[in-house]
Design a protein around this nucleic acid. Structure first.
Lengths: 251, 251
DNA sequence: CTGTCGTTTCGGCCGGGAACGAAGCGTTTC
DNA sequence: GAAACGCTTCGTTCCCGGCCGAAACGACAG
């Protein structure tokens, strides 16, 4: 039998087929913020019966896309590695590009997701793109299709902002991965810098996690902080007072 | 109906399902070298009847994963964008990691693929990893999990080697994307630098495309060139004379 | 020990979609 | 014009795999 390649297209299909089921896709999407969720939570996210969810999770774990953490009578699942997260990102990026806003009933909760959410370990959404834009405009950052890099001025700026880039930077000369946003269709900051930025924003109390969603809440403190540090308006359009500098988010 | 998210996990599943069929996966894999192939060639690659292939190709084109070029009575398909290529890469990277050499009947033709092949627009395989290693060892390159960058010395070296990095470099400060190799499980050079390197090796006549495979042929000229410029032994293990400096490829 | 909760296993149902062959359409060659 | 070729459309078959509910299992709480 020569027709079975030892690796390659065969296993490509196997992995992709796992992502190709709507229920599993919803589960993986729910896990994309990096947290560990229980089987029931994932069943809820996928809108299937617990028994169905169990079968799906067994497959995903068997394929090493998820890792399992048994804790009492709960079973916590999480993405097996950043590699898996990046794979999901890249598929979503393609999905976003090739489906040019087919049907657009912009759900109310989508608005929150569109403003700012987590993307595995970093920030995504309008705010994240805005941050990337602001840093680029000031010459702190160069973000291209395939790679990104901080300038020295940018490194100093982010260190002053509270990121500890020194350790990382000694090991790796460049660690700022561009990530295509599926709502904005624009690049934002992933990689180590993106993760650090997200961590710092949560640490400062500018953003808060929500229990039920990947969307993040911008605190009043954050509203002021983003305006002051990045010249960004982090309000939801149509919610509350009209922004003073409306152009800031749109750009 | 609140249960239908406008974008996100739904379209993730849609795209992934397209990759999840073995026949389509084989087609996409065949297209991963960036060339355009006809419908019959793809049918052959996927080992399905022309009518079946036609249906698959229609779906892939409809989803904008492939673009169609009509030419006479032939229909040439190719990957719609580098984004699609990168998505396939990332899925294969996961597939390679999570299937730890399940069944290993190392096909003879796999040996050629393992040595050097194209990966969308750049080189992959043992030789490509070797090149990346050599450049890193000389301090020309820093390649990490999420990003990579040339040093100034590395830029000069590659320019002397015949890559025209000037144009690119003015536009983008950093453009050297690391790409996980599914045979070697090591990083090699993708992005603009990787593409340039591949182009230059073909241009120099060091490597030649094969008609039927993504594997490349190392010419005698290339054998000497790789040894001289990168201190690499580009022979197939077990084929021909034993390499003089065996450690060079293994590292 | 008994009940509750989180999770898995089993059995059965059902639909989507991948496969093929035959026939049709457009293009090139002789 | 006829024949060969490349590809698609149509109609049919068929099987894989997702779904659920019922029941079993293990863990914790009372």
């Amino acid at each position: 039998m020569i027709f079975a390649m030892s690796l390659g297209p065969g296993s490509l299909a196997e992995v992709a087929a796992l992502l190709g089921d709507p229920a599993r896709a919803h589960m993986l999407d729910a896990l994309m913020d990096g947290r560990a969720l229980t089987a029931t939570e994932l069943a809820l996210a996928a809108r299937v019966a617990p028994s169905t969810a169990s079968a799906h999770l067994a497959k995903l774990e068997d394929a090493r896309l998820l890792t399992l953490l048994k804790q009492g009578r709960h079973r916590y699942y999480r993405l097996a590695s950043p590699l898996v997260g990046r794979m999901l990102e890249s598929v979503m990026a393609v999905a976003a590009v090739q489906s040019p806003a087919r049907h657009r009933p912009p759900t109310p909760r989508d608005a929150a997701l569109g403003l700012v959410r987590t993307c595995y370990d970093h920030l995504a959404g309008r705010l994240a793109v805005g941050i990337a834009d602001a840093l680029q405009q000031r010459g702190y950052l160069a973000l291209e299709d395939e790679a990104g890099a901080l300038t020295e001025a940018g490194t100093r700026f982010l260190q002053k902002f509270g990121l500890d880039l020194d350790l990382e930077q000694k090991r790796r000369r460049s660690f700022c991965r561009p990530c295509l946003d599926w709502t904005e269709r624009r690049m934002h900051i992933g990689g180590a810098v993106g993760a650090g930025l997200a961590r710092r924003c949560l640490e400062l109390g500018w953003l808060e996690r929500r229990r039920d969603s990947r969307a993040l809440k911008v605190t009043p403190l954050g509203l002021e902080g983003f305006r002051h540090s990045f010249d960004l308006d982090a309000t939801l359009p149509g919610a509350g007072a009209k922004p003073a500098a409306k152009g800031a988010t749109g750009r």
